[in-house]
Computed example of a mutant assay.
Amino acid sequence: MSTSNGSDVTSTTRYFLGKDDRLKSRKAIDVLFKQGKSFSHFPLRVFFYKSVSGSGLKAGFSASTRNFKKATDRNRVKRLLRETYRLQKNIIEKEVDTTTQSITILFVYIHKEVPQYEVLYAKMSTALLRIVKQLHENNQ
């Protein structure tokens, strides 16, 4: 498809992280910690749980008050986590779409310094790929 000036127009993928995609339920968070699996991929600690019932993919983001005394720093870290997840969640959405199960994920930032966006983007990508790999291993 081309426009009148000859430039090509490609279809753009829109990325969302809406209210329904967020992990907010205390009950779901408790189940995540009790029955879920976890791994560390510095500077992230990732908890995930795959259940038979539920609705799709939910994700939560956390930064410790112990590591970040100022709320502005904690909010910045969580904002960066949400943004890097939002842009890459299609990696794991493909896994959810193929099954009728739900996946709950919690990302905890464990480093003591505010991250650079590029570093966090790369770490989030490898963490999501590792979740997908572990979910495939559990299915077999």
Rank of each mutant, 00 (worst) to 15 (best):
D21A: 09
N5H: 07
V77M: 05
N138C: 08
S125Q: 11
G56C: 04
G56T: 00
F48Y: 08
Y49T: 00
P115F: 11
L17E: 03
K27G: 10
Y15L: 15
R14T: 03
H111E: 07
K94N: 09
Q134C: 11
T13D: 11
F107S: 00
K133G: 12
R26D: 03
G54H: 09
Y85Q: 00
T10S: 13
Y117I: 08
N5M: 02
K94E: 00
F61G: 02
N90K: 04
V52I: 08
K37G: 12
V114E: 07
D73W: 05
F39I: 00
V52T: 05
H136A: 14
K50E: 12
N5S: 13
S25C: 06
R86M: 12
S2H: 14
Q101R: 15
S64L: 10
K24H: 10
S40K: 12
K24T: 04
V46W: 01
S38I: 04
Q116K: 14
G36T: 04
S125C: 06
L81H: 00
R86D: 11
Y85D: 00
I91F: 07
L135C: 13
K123L: 10
S25G: 05
S4K: 01
E118I: 09
A127W: 03
I131P: 10
L128P: 06
R22W: 01
P43G: 02
G56N: 11
K37F: 14
R82S: 03
F107M: 09
Y49G: 09
S7C: 10
T100V: 10
K94G: 06
Q35S: 15
I103N: 13
A63L: 03
K69Q: 01
T10K: 15
K50P: 00
V108K: 13
R14M: 03
R22V: 01
K133M: 08
F42M: 07
G56A: 13
S11A: 12
Q35A: 15
I105Y: 13
Y85K: 04
R82Y: 02
Q134H: 15
K112V: 03
I110Y: 02
D21W: 00
A122T: 01
L81P: 00
T126Y: 10
L17T: 00
R66M: 13
L44N: 02
R86L: 06
K24R: 11
Q134M: 15
Q35I: 07
D8V: 15
K37L: 12
S11N: 10
L23I: 05
M124T: 04
V9A: 03
L128G: 09
N139A: 12
D73H: 11
K50F: 00
Y85M: 01
K69S: 07
G54F: 10
V77R: 10
K50L: 00
D73R: 05
V9M: 07
S38L: 14
I110C: 01
L106P: 11
L81Y: 05
R45T: 06
N67E: 04
E93I: 01
S11W: 12
K89F: 14
L80M: 13
K112R: 13
T12C: 14
V9F: 07
L129K: 14
L87W: 03
L80D: 04
S2Q: 14
K24G: 06
T104A: 09
V77Q: 12
F107D: 04
Q116V: 07
I103L: 15
V31Q: 09
A71I: 02
G54L: 09
S7M: 10
S125W: 07
G54T: 08
D8M: 13
I131L: 10
A122D: 08
L80S: 04
M1S: 05
